[in-house]
Amino acid sequence: MNTDDELQKRFDEGNFSAEGIDAQAYQKVFDTLKREPEYTLPVYFADRLVTLIESKETAKEVSRDKFWLGLGLFSLVVTLIVAFALTDFKPSFGVFRFLAGYTGLAAFAVAFILLLNWIDRKIIRKAEAF
């Protein structure tokens, strides 16, 4: 009579010649165990996951850039304060006083720079994207 141990070994080796109800039952069990589980991942799984990783990395980079920008601005302000304190520097805007007589020119310069920025954002960068 076949013991369970022997039967399992035989089935493991691919020898399905045993007889009896135990062997029949093992046959069914081994056949079923070889079947792949029904659950499968969607076909787009890998693409979606890579996109997710890329967006996470981009978000991480942006927040790192923001951190360094913040730190840079903070250091700039601190440096300015320290420099002013150490050198007893008094800010003077006398150099800009001559602009008082050219208000129109100053306003045009500002408006022109804003316009160039707008064109750059709305037209040039969009065109480059395509």
């Binding site: 369970d4 141990d5 399992q8 109800i21 135990d22 029949q24 039952a25 093992y26 069914k28 069990v29 081994f30 165990l33």
Partner: peptide, 17 residues
């Protein structure tokens, strides 16, 4: 592995019977 297959076999045997 042995016990799992043995348990399954015992149960299947009942249905086969």
């Amino acid at each position: 592995l042995f016990r799992a297959r043995n348990l399954l076999k015992e149960k299947v045997k009942k249905y086969l019977g």
